[in-house]
Nucleic acid binder design. Structure first.
Lengths: 344, 344
DNA sequence: TTGTAAGCGTTATCAG
DNA sequence: CTGATAACGCTTACAA
């Protein structure tokens, strides 16, 4: 079944009449080998369609030139469905890794799983990128050990004081601020906020903190009764919005902590005969590809997945190389579309 | 920088007072090792946080337990943008691979690249999944060699006579039929078709073939002047639709060979003051996540990415195992939404 | 049930 | 500049 016997560096050595380490060196274009020998060896290698066996190389050199991407999912989510924001990240990380000459090993993990962060231990990868860690508190516990062991990894997430490990994330506080600021400028004063309040979800916390700061800037009091818990998903946004409507509290706009939530919110509003943006304004968060195609198109806070992928890959490579590394945030940006209308 | 010296099976052997192969066997839970010894060894391994070095294992066993996914992109496409259909595939392939206990190595390739299909040669992976091969004719040339070498790979694509290698794909002919049949049932008789006509793109050809078959079934003549070339992208659908409108030919519906095209088509129609579905009906193809959120929601032909991912992974694994394998198609399905209206 | 010996295909080290 | 020799850490025979 399998192909013919693959040529090895020994085979080439014989054919070229040189020693086998010389072959190895020649193929890496080492200047320690004379140009003539190099040429000869490389020619033969090409003719035989020789490829270095990466397992042998990795074993000997203790380096894999591979990055592992561990994607964690809330197990509650729909089986066959991946958060589109993560999908975008996945795309840009793959690209960035390729650009740096690293292979990318991808693995989905269930949060419930016994944590399978053995990629570096098993020498499958030189470093790890974590995406979507679930809840922050238990995640931190889990990675503290990794960090002490000197593993090379970076996490997509919030940057907080005294965190173990390396983090890269979006400036969620800024995003929350921009969203609320936009609505407040449009004249809204009673703005609902959809997003979980918990130490376990610092991103949401930060988005809400920005939300508060914007209110302070405008001298508008926060209406705490308009804050509803919701996770990333559409269902969650839908449910929270129903609760909001049924609460009977007055509101003219909703700031959602994710675009999926916003989709659910719009659906719920519509079912109650409320139109966006005529009756209620909506802002999302993420800028997933669907956002611009929604009806109405969704104003939202954009996370730059392209920059994020590159930042994650660069960070973990720096860590691998033993360079100085530091956690940092990427700016978020307001994208104005139709879902907020022209103001009150 | 790197962690402490990782424990090896030899270390454990010493501690456990057994031979090193015994350790290796015990860790694989081989029944050839007494329960007692197994327990002892496993306990020590756990305490030391020992992990098998996959490079050593792979080198010795000549198996990697890894699949490579090579994703080809039309280089013309927007740099940071990946076809959402492929993104869905990527998600489901990752899942399916994990389920089968395989790691997944992902690589983006530019079509222009010097073909980097060396994954199996280099023993990085036991088999390869190809996604988005560009144009069929040159792709076939490229893989013929792989096939002769006995490489283990499967391609997402059309199933044709005398193909080299293994293919899994959607039943595009059926999809094209379902799309046109739906429109014809609604009373449309002059239906435009957007999709490239070329031997190099058999999927589009098949979709059009189904389109024709539906017309035949309904006894309606095909209006060849209503066929416009377009690729997958939104821009392409936009441009083709403009051309269609400017051609002055009468039409009441458009069948698009991809959802992205449909998005572009709707945009073009709207700019010409034409409303969907009131003035023109639209059917897409793929059922990308955005489709249901468009305004109007897009009727389309669904490709089952979940089944597809599983089928691709299973196929390549069968091939690796030397089992009998055969190319096959997965059924496509009509999803009725609002973009076709209630008929003429 | 366990141990011994060999080897997977490289790269590293050192000597020439 | 090149070559001999020894690892890298595991699995596969085969022998006991």
């Amino acid at each position: 079944m399998k192909s013919k016997n693959k040529p090895t560096s020994v085979d080439i050595a014989h054919l070229a009449g040189v020693s086998q380490p010389t072959v190895s060196r020649a193929l890496r274009d080492s200047p320690l080998v004379s140009l003539e020998t190099r040429r000869k060896v490389q020619k033969i290698a090409r003719e035989l369609n020789y490829k270095v066996d990466v397992n042998a190389r990795n074993l000997r050199s203790q380096r894999t030139n591979t990055l592992a991407l561990l994607l964690f999912e809330d197990s509650g989510e729909n089986e066959s469905f991946i958060n589109p924001f993560f999908l975008s990240m996945l795309g840009s990380i793959t690209r960035a890794a390729a650009q740096q000459g690293y292979d990318l090993l991808i693995s989905f993990q269930q949060l419930s799983d016994d944590w399978n962060a053995e990629y570096e231990d098993a020498n499958k990868a030189d470093g790890i990128i974590f995406l979507g860690y679930g809840d922050y508190t238990s995640y931190i516990k889990r990675i503290s050990k990794l960090d002490q062991e000197g593993a090379h990894f970076v996490t997509w997430g919030p940057v907080l004081k005294d965190q173990p490990g390396l983090f890269v994330g979006s400036d969620n506080e800024l995003g929350g601020f921009l969203a609320a600021d936009h609505l407040l400028k449009l004249g809204h004063t009673r703005i609902a906020f959809l997003g979980v309040e918990s130490k376990d979800h610092p991103e949401f916390h930060d988005r809400h903190a920005g939300f508060i700061r914007a209110h302070q800037k405008h001298g508008i009091a926060i209406a705490d009764e308009l804050r509803f818990n919701a996770f990333f998903s559409e269902e969650s946004g839908y449910t929270a919005t129903q609760a909001l409507i049924q609460s009977g509290h007055d509101f003219s706009a909703i700031a959602c902590a994710s675009d999926l939530m916003a989709i659910g919110a719009i659906k719920a509003l519509r079912e109650h005969g409320l139109r966006v943006p005529r009756d209620k304004a909506i802002v999302g968060f993420d800028d997933i590809p669907t956002a611009e195609h929604l009806a109405p198109s969704l104003s939202t806070i954009q996370q730059d997945t392209f920059a994020a992928g590159k930042a994650l890959v660069d960070s973990v490579i720096h860590s691998i190389n033993g360079d100085e590394t530091k956690s940092f945030l990427l700016p978020t940006k307001l994208i104005v579309r139709d879902s907020c209308g022209a103001g009150i």
